[in-house]
Design a protein around this nucleic acid. Structure first.
Lengths: 163, 163
DNA sequence: TGGCTGAGTCTGTCAAGCGGACTTATCCTG
DNA sequence: CAGGATAAGTCCGCTTGACAGACTCAGCCA
């Protein structure tokens, strides 16, 4: 372990899980769209007006999210109108909840508003308690961020070092 | 509660914590840069080559992250060279660990690679166990994503409904 | 003096986002 | 059946930002 060359410099980012996840989520609008679905807004026009997404971008992102399996189209019909489609989270989409909650938690801590948060994650039903996210290791400890390290896993690819 | 008009449609996204957090993080490259810092790569050239960020974009994102207080510049000097600066996470930056771990966890589940993950979060030191993120409410339960709801908080802003 | 190196800035090209107008399909009303 | 309403798009032209590649700058060393 030489401080001059961090260990990470010797492996590649090519197949990095974070990169691959960000291919799907790492876009300004995609996350806005997901937020709408998480709070229960599922229709094209509603998502568009509430999130302020340009129509074309919304069309595009919805298609991408369907293709990636995070959401699916679901038919509905308002009385006196023709059948249309709304968009709902799949299990894969729902499983992004920890990411969302972690972001809200960070925002509440570092970008607080006077008077409290504008949005809260709560345990559904009678409990109704505030929900947060905690780091936990398989041995049952709950390490602080400083006690966590990111290390190369079994499929980490070596990387040619310049020089 | 009318299925036709989701509750969320009656409040605004204007001051939403997720939006405000995404102002900072919701950018393809910002997250790549943060990943490099999390794995211990701290120098301009190293970040640039490992993450593949265009120079100008890197300059720009580093400046934004400094301004937002997620990282700071730190002087260093290699033997026989002049003093330069590297970039390190502040406490605010480090506290994004849950977001990062949540993303890795989701990616490991829904975008798995044959042979296992290329990157792993572990408990630093002797423990070395795999670290994940769990949802937990203040009452001590650990709800599944389906048992969590996002609700307006004390500072949620009402929103004019069209029609 | 001149070259090396890390950390940038400068420049022209090209893709993407953007707002606003237009389109489509179906239902209801007259 | 003509005409209007509505949700969910598509089309169009403009502007912004990303991008690659060349250039700059400051200190150190031979």
């Amino acid at each position: 372990m030489n401080e001059q060359v961090p260990e990470a410099m010797s492996w590649s980012t090519e197949n990095c899980t974070i990169s691959r996840t960000m291919e799907i989520l790492g876009d300004k609008w995609t996350f806005h769209v997901l937020r709408e679905l998480f709070v229960g807004v599922r229709r094209f026009e509603d998502i568009r007006t509430r999130a302020g997404v340009p129509r074309q971008v919304l069309t595009d992102r919805l298609a991408a999210l369907i293709e990636r399996g995070l959401i699916r189209r679901h038919p509905y019909r308002l009385p006196g109108q023709r059948e249309r489609y709304e968009y709902r989270l799949t299990q894969a989409g729902l499983d992004l909840y920890p990411v969302l909650v972690a972001m809200i938690q960070w925002g509440d801590q570092y970008l607080p508003l006077d008077g409290g948060p504008p949005i809260e994650a709560r345990h559904r039903g009678d409990c109704n308690a505030h929900v947060t996210v905690v780091l936990r290791c398989e041995a049952g400890h709950e390490p602080t961020p400083r006690d966590v390290v990111l290390r190369p896993g079994p499929t980490a690819k070596p990387r040619a070092l310049a020089g």
